[in-house]
């Protein structure tokens, strides 16, 4: 077996990483497989991914290079090399590699998300948004993070809120999506939208008191003190419905004090 590059020499100190039980075990297993099949490109890719996961970028690169020399068309190789490039903050290189990966397999959602992140890192928000949208269309159960990133590429708050709402429609009332949408709505002056969102949350949660307090705070900041006062009072009523052992908890007691501070007409006792 002849290697055309010097990368082979990077493969020699494979056990030079600090002792790490799983990493050592994984390397032992893959090293044994490489020794048994030294021409198998996929094994070098797999070993490179282990090093990449461990943060050893140089050894990861060497393994990827050997894999590329053995089989330039190896599936997943471009994606792995793009991950490496992005780890090195080289998004342009990552995009170039991922274009190859996506040409071969347009349904590769991991490559699509990686390219979206690389586009975002390069300042190409619109292109990033297109890739996130394409990935979201392909994924059956995307993680909330993807909707957050998709919203972050939006050209304006309205579009960002629309994307977050699309996430809530698919995933449910996920706190990270709700919080981001509420913040955007308030900063864009869409107070009624934010109030409606809070009302929907309040209607379905087991303990609405802190959400009612937030509703009051939002209305207070928006210069609507009468409606704010009603929200604070509703929060106080909700506290009164909790079992004693929750009503008297330090967290609830703090909330009661905050409510009284916000609306002095309310009382600490039921």
């Amino acid at each position: 077996m002849r290697f055309r590059s010097a990368s082979f020499f990077f493969l020699l100190p494979v056990l030079a990483l600090p002792a790490h039980p799983e990493l050592d075990a994984a390397l032992q297993r893959i090293n044994a497989r490489v020794a048994a099949s030294p021409q198998a490109a996929a094994l070098y890719l797999e070993r490179g991914e282990i090093y990449l996961g461990a943060g050893d970028l140089l050894t990861a690169e060497a393994n990827f290079q050997v894999a590329a020399e053995l089989d330039p068309q190896l599936p997943r190789l471009d994606r792995a090399r793009a991950t490496l490039a992005l780890s090195r903050r080289q998004p342009a290189d990552a995009i170039r590699l991922l274009e190859g990966a996506l040409r071969r397999n347009p349904a590769d959602t991991e490559a699509r998300i990686l390219r979206a992140r690389s586009q975002l890192a390069s300042g190409h928000s619109a292109a990033a948004g297109e890739d996130f949208a394409a990935a979201l269309a392909l994924l059956e159960q995307p993680a909330p993070e993807i909707f957050l990133e998709y919203a972050a590429c939006a050209a304006n708050p309205i579009e960002a809120i629309r994307r977050l709402d699309a996430g809530c429609a698919r995933l449910g009332a996920v706190p990270a999506l709700l919080e981001r949408a509420l913040a955007l709505e308030e900063s864009a002056g869409l107070i009624d939208h934010a109030v409606s969102r809070l009302d929907r949350i309040i209607a379905r949660v087991e303990r609405p008191e802190s959400w009612l307090k937030r509703r009051g705070d939002l209305l207070q900041r928006a210069g609507r003190p009468a409606e704010a006062g009603a929200s604070y009072a509703a929060a106080r009523t909700a506290i009164g419905r909790l079992p004693d052992w929750l009503q008297e908890s330090p967290a609830t007691t703090r909330l009661k004090h905050e409510l009284v501070d916000s609306a002095p007409s309310l009382s600490l006792s039921p």
Binding site: E145, P175, A176, E206, R207, S210, L242
Partner: peptide, 15 residues
Amino acid sequence: GPMMQWLKADLAATS
């Protein structure tokens, strides 16, 4: 992150 935001909300919501 989303997991932490969810955890805080989940802890606050349970009775």
